[in-house]
Simulated assay, not measured.
Amino acid sequence: MEDDYLRQAAIVMASLELLPAQPSDLTHILRNPDQFQTLLDPSRLDPSTGSSDSELVRYLCDSLDHTRIEYWHKQIDILASDEVARPILSADIPGGPVYPGRLAECWDAPPILFATAAMDRETSSVAIIGSRAARTDVVSDAHDLAADLAASGTTIVSGLALGVDAAAHEGALAADGITVAVMGTGITRIYPEQNTELAHRIRRNGVLVSQFPPYAPRTRTSFLRRNHVIAGLSDVSIIMSGESRSGSRHEIQQAIGYGRPVLMWSPALEHQEWARKLADSGEAIFVASTEEVRRTLDGLDQ
């Protein structure tokens, strides 16, 4: 069963290399049991079928290179055997790792994740994100907010960057809570290097997760794609600081697109025009305390 699952993951990775469009197109195939089984076993293809729903499946089945499947099977097996990370497919496979439920609800969810541990589907989760160059007081606020929320059982999600992200992870760990670090690189590459020790502690007491091939470097767009996963894994997103065109702003726009509540840290953002416009539109609200965040979380259960 284990080797079968790793081989399925290898087929998904080889398919991603061929994909003519968005990775989420492959996610839709994995979520369709018939199409996914055909991808795994091309002999199931019906020569008479001409529906548009099967065109991508047929293209992948015709184009898959078995040497690439074997390559990925070997690479994923090494990762699993060395306990570096395990693949999590968006397909519903009995007995297989469970794909995060909140992320599965998102239209652009990645077809595969690599994670160092399972992600709890039951506890509430909050993304705390912000600038790498945030003011010292804002970084301290991020740490304390994460610690307060984590101490009460909320999972803290962030992006392993310097500044606010690192403070949020540190706060959760200081409270003996759970934190999820969503990476903009492959699961074997820590960026920035200054957070290597922090990443090791998150591995022991939380989860490192990446949607990218295991050895992939950072790219111009990988951190923007990472932001989609941060928003998708979280019930609520809190932006502590950021400019109108920042990566943090991009993350909260994704959260808004997913229909998730967005909170803005008023001590740092109430003077920003873009933040005031979001508040005026009702797409986000200003907060200044842990209690206000908890009230938002409590409201999700009503």
Rank of each mutant, 00 (worst) to 15 (best):
Glu55Leu: 15
Thr196Phe: 10
Ile11Tyr: 02
Pro111Phe: 08
Ala147Phe: 07
Val209Trp: 01
Asp176Phe: 10
Leu19Pro: 01
Ala161Leu: 01
Arg58Ser: 09
Pro100Glu: 02
Asp4Lys: 14
Thr136Ile: 15
Leu79Glu: 03
Arg86Tyr: 11
Ala268Phe: 09
Val157Cys: 03
Gln35Ser: 15
Leu30Glu: 07
Arg220Thr: 11
His28Leu: 15
Arg102Pro: 04
Lys277Pro: 08
Cys106Met: 13
Arg201His: 11
Trp265Cys: 05
Ala146His: 01
Ile112Glu: 04
Tyr215Ala: 14
Leu173Asn: 01
Phe286Val: 00
Arg218Leu: 15
Ser131Phe: 08
Gly186Glu: 01
Val12Arg: 06
Gly259Ile: 04
Ser24His: 14
Arg68Tyr: 05
Thr116Asp: 00
Gln37Pro: 09
Asp298Met: 09
Ser51Gly: 15
Val57Ala: 08
Leu60Arg: 05
Ala216Glu: 15
Ser24Asn: 12
Thr290Gly: 10
Ala166Ser: 11
Ser24Leu: 07
Ser52Glu: 15
Asp108Gln: 01
Leu208Phe: 01
Ala127Lys: 03
Leu233Met: 04
Ser244Gln: 15
Arg121Phe: 07
Ala10Asn: 03
Phe212Leu: 11
Pro47Asp: 10
Leu89Ile: 05
Trp265Arg: 05
Ile252Phe: 06
Ile238Leu: 12
Arg102Ala: 03
His200Thr: 13
Tyr191Met: 09
Leu145Glu: 07
Glu170Lys: 14
Ser140Leu: 14
Tyr215Cys: 12
Ala279Ser: 10
Ala10Thr: 08
Val287Leu: 04
Glu83Tyr: 10
Gln35Val: 07
Pro42Leu: 06
Asp92Gln: 14
Leu45Trp: 13
His169Tyr: 07
Tyr258Pro: 02
Arg201Cys: 07
Ile88Gln: 02
Leu278Tyr: 08
Ala14Cys: 07
Ala9Met: 06
Glu283Ala: 13
Asp53Leu: 13
Thr154Val: 15
Thr38Ala: 07
Asp165Val: 05
Gln302His: 12
His143Val: 08
Leu224Met: 08
Arg220Ile: 09
Thr296Arg: 12
Arg189Lys: 13
Val182Gln: 02
Ser222Gln: 04
Arg204Cys: 10
Cys106Asp: 12
Glu122Ser: 12
Glu193Phe: 15
Asp120Ile: 02
Arg226Trp: 02
Thr290Cys: 13
Leu198Arg: 02
Ala115Gln: 02
Cys61Lys: 07
Thr188Tyr: 05
Ile128Ser: 03
Pro87Glu: 03
Phe114Ala: 01
Asp53Trp: 12
Asp108Asn: 06
Tyr71Lys: 08
Ile156Met: 04
Met264Asp: 04
Ala284Thr: 02
Gly242Glu: 01
Glu2Phe: 13
Glu243Phe: 10
Val207Arg: 02
Gln37Cys: 13
Ile78Thr: 14
Ala115Thr: 06
Thr219Glu: 08
Leu145Ile: 14
Arg68Val: 08
